[in-house]
């Protein structure tokens, strides 16, 4: 089976906030029933104002992300202006479509794209999230979205807790909670690893730029979430 020949990345969540977007991903990659990696990083900045997370075949996903990063930077330098956020999403959709052949043979990869829109048609909705299907379909999501094997549980958790206009700080907490819930019920998603100090990668994109939470910042949030679950396992 294709799941056994190459590592698979699992759950990514994205949340639109008052200031922009938050994206978080767990750290596990699986190969069949094995854990291929405990500390893979599946959420990356696409450029100064947008983030990309990948689920599916890790090798293809990382390559897709790298090429996408280069394309955005290249366009920016050649044309002297950034692509619009919709333009970036459309480009990524075309790249996912290009992988359809491999996807049909079992090496599927699906990204999640989110960013701060520097020129939004509605200024109150500057943080935007786009999801994709393997055929290159592009769908703008409202509020939040998740991809990967644990996305069902992550989305269910977010559905109950998400409120429009949530602050970035609260959204970071929500994202880590949602990943905890995904890890709780999905074997392919890794939870916060207290013994090894491996915590989810959390990034934000706001009017300032993208920011990856430092080790200290994410440790504080993750330990807090785990402490909460000690008292109430259901969150």
């Amino acid at each position: 089976m294709s799941a056994d020949i190459a590592p698979h990345g699992t759950t990514i969540v994205a949340i639109a906030t008052a200031e922009g977007v938050v994206m978080a991903g767990d750290r596990r990659a699986t190969m069949g029933n094995l854990i291929a990696s405990r500390d893979i990083e599946k959420v990356h900045p696409a450029d100064a104002y947008s983030l990309i997370g990948i689920a599916g075949t890790a090798g293809i996903g990382i390559e897709l992300m790298r090429l996408f990063q280069v394309e955005l930077e290249h366009y920016e330098k050649i044309e002297g202006a950034m692509l619009s956020l919709d333009g970036k999403a459309n480009r990524l959709a075309a790249m996912v479509r290009g992988n359809l052949g491999a996807a049909m043979q079992g090496l599927a990869v699906v990204p999640l794209f989110a960013g701060f829109d520097l020129a939004p048609s509605d200024p109150s909705k500057a943080g935007r999230i786009f999801s994709f299907d393997v055929a290159g379909g592009l769908y703008e999501e409202t509020g939040f979205d998740a991809i990967g094997s644990g996305s069902l549980f992550a989305k269910s958790a977010l559905k109950k807790k998400y409120r429009a206009g949530v602050s970035t700080q609260d959204a970071i907490r929500l994202a880590v909670e949602a990943l905890y819930d995904a890890a709780d019920d999905d074997t392919a998603t890794g939870g916060p690893d207290l013994s090894r100090k491996i915590y989810p990668v959390v990034m934000t994109a706001t009017a300032d730029s993208t920011h990856r939470l430092t080790d200290a910042e994410i440790t504080a949030v993750a330990e807090d979430v785990v402490a909460g679950r000690m008292e109430n396992p259901g969150g």
Binding site: A48, E76, K77, G80, A81, M82, L83, S84, L85, G87, L118, A119, P120, S121
Partner: peptide, 9 residues
């Protein structure tokens, strides 16, 4: 790093 923001709608 880049020059300007993307074209506004």
């Amino acid at each position: 790093a880049g020059d300007v923001v993307p074209p506004a709608p």
